[in-house]
Structure formats: C-alpha cells, structure tokens
Simulated assay, not measured.
Amino acid sequence: MNPMPELIPMLKQLRLSGILDSLEARNRQAIEEKLAYTDFLAMLVQDEVARRSQRKFAMRVRRANFRNHKTLEEFDFSFNPNINRALIMDLATCRFLEEGANLLVVGPCGTGKSHIAQAIGHCAVRMGYDVLFTTQTKMLGQLHAARATNAYERRLNALAKVDLLIIDDFGLKPLRTPQDEDIHDLIGERYERRSTIITSNLDLNEWGDAFPNKLLGSATIDRIRHGAYSLLLDGKSFRAARPLPKYPKNEVAENVKKGKN
C-alpha cells in the first residue's frame, strides 16, 4: 500500500513538505542499507533542519542588501601586506557583536574598506545575525523619505534593532541639518546595544568636520568611538587604472589622424 497520497497533505499541514524533496532517496537508502526506522527518521529530520537553515541563511543574505558578493576568502591580503590580517580574522569571529562594540574601517579609496566590511557582514550572516549594508547617502535619504510620510520612527527603530548595521562611505558627503540629527539619534539608539561597522575615507580625527553642528557631532562621534575597534587600511588601490597599451609613435599618429577624420 502506497502511503504517499495520505502523507503529502499531512506533511503540508505540519509545514514539513520539504521532507518530500528527499523522502524517496532516503527511503531507497534505508532499504538498501537496512536501516532502523529511527535512523531513517533521523535522516529525514536532519534533511529538514538543513533545508530550513539554508532557507534562513538565504533570507538573511537578501535582507542584508550587500552591494555584491564579497567574502574574506576572496580578499587578496598579499596585495597590501601591511593590512592587519590578524585583527580582521579576529573580527570575523563576530565576538565584537556580542560585546556590542563598533568597528571603524578607515583608509584611502580602493584599499578594500567596503570589501572587508561586507565580508565581516557575511560572517555574521553565517552565524545567524541579521545584517544590513547601506551607504550614508542611501540611509539618510530613506530616513528623509520616511519623515515625509510620517514613518520616520518606524524606519529609525528598524535601523536601530538590526544586529549589525554597516554604514559605508561615512563623510563622503558633508551632512546637512537634519541629517546630522538623524545620525545622532540612530547612533544613540544603538549605543552599547548593537554593533555598527562604519567605513570612511576620512581620518578618524576628521569625522567631526562632516557635522554642521560641531557640538552634536562631537557627542555622536564620542559614542561611535567608545569601545570601538579601529582598522586602518593603507597602501595601493585595488581599483588602480590599467596601463594604456603602448604603440609605436607612427602608429599613435596614424590613430590620431583617423580619429580626426
């Protein structure tokens, strides 16, 4: 007697329909290996747990809104050998999230700030944390739009509660009022409760220059830097321009002449 017609609706009712994906294969394996009923059941349950974990992981990655797929496995530490690899690998354990500490990643353009920030975010996602990657400009734009529709508090609370918030390109554009107040309120809500990664091209002692209200900026930066880990990047840019092809002088002149014609 085939139990499948009765089994399928019951599994769906129990929200275990994913078991159907591996049921047939596991049933053949159990027959071939003469497994006990409990071993057969254990395999089905393990498959279901793995499926749900993968589904949750994929959902967290989508919610994180990473700019692109950047991991530590893909990062070329040999390109700039002075990068503090030991600190980065320690941060990848995500212990700083348990501390509620921030991470400040500072350095010139193209030295890998966004890559490292997103890679650590990926590590956090793998460990079950909720992560959100955004830029200063995008985040403040969303808060501004939310204020216009009376949804500011809801949006601020959502940003405040995410386990790990990554703000890329802080200070790339000077803040205006009330943007400086929005940053201050957000940092205040997350202070010593949730971890924030902030990347910036500005030196840490220049961050205050991004705020039009210096007193507000000083209070905000004081909270950001308190107990924070600092990762200073320096060296060559990963985005260095490729060298132009070299042509013989007469060929260059010919190409210029053709371009004019």
Rank of each mutant, 00 (worst) to 15 (best):
residue 29 Q to M: 10
residue 222 D to N: 06
residue 168 D to G: 06
residue 68 N to G: 14
residue 45 V to I: 15
residue 108 P to C: 11
residue 103 L to I: 15
residue 6 E to L: 15
residue 60 R to P: 02
residue 117 A to W: 03
residue 133 F to E: 01
residue 178 P to S: 12
residue 194 R to A: 10
residue 4 M to V: 13
residue 39 D to V: 01
residue 229 Y to M: 12
residue 228 A to M: 10
residue 229 Y to N: 14
residue 135 T to E: 02
residue 254 E to T: 09
residue 128 G to N: 01
residue 248 P to N: 14
residue 81 P to F: 02
residue 90 D to I: 00
residue 174 P to R: 10
residue 146 A to C: 08
residue 157 N to T: 13
residue 192 E to H: 11
residue 70 K to F: 14
residue 117 A to N: 08
residue 218 S to K: 08
residue 98 E to L: 10
residue 45 V to D: 01
residue 72 L to A: 07
residue 221 I to T: 05
residue 1 M to I: 12
residue 44 L to E: 05
residue 3 P to M: 09
residue 45 V to Q: 07
residue 122 H to R: 13
residue 164 L to G: 05
residue 186 L to G: 03
residue 40 F to W: 14
residue 170 F to K: 03
residue 165 L to R: 06
residue 6 E to I: 14
residue 120 I to E: 00
residue 102 N to A: 13
residue 212 P to L: 10
residue 255 N to H: 12
residue 193 R to I: 11
residue 12 K to R: 15
residue 141 G to L: 10
residue 76 D to K: 02
residue 217 G to K: 09
residue 222 D to L: 05
residue 156 L to R: 02
residue 181 E to G: 03
residue 82 N to W: 00
residue 209 D to F: 14
residue 162 V to Y: 06
residue 75 F to G: 03
residue 116 I to W: 04
residue 71 T to A: 08
residue 234 D to W: 00
residue 159 L to D: 00
residue 129 Y to T: 07
residue 144 H to E: 13
residue 90 D to E: 15
residue 133 F to M: 07
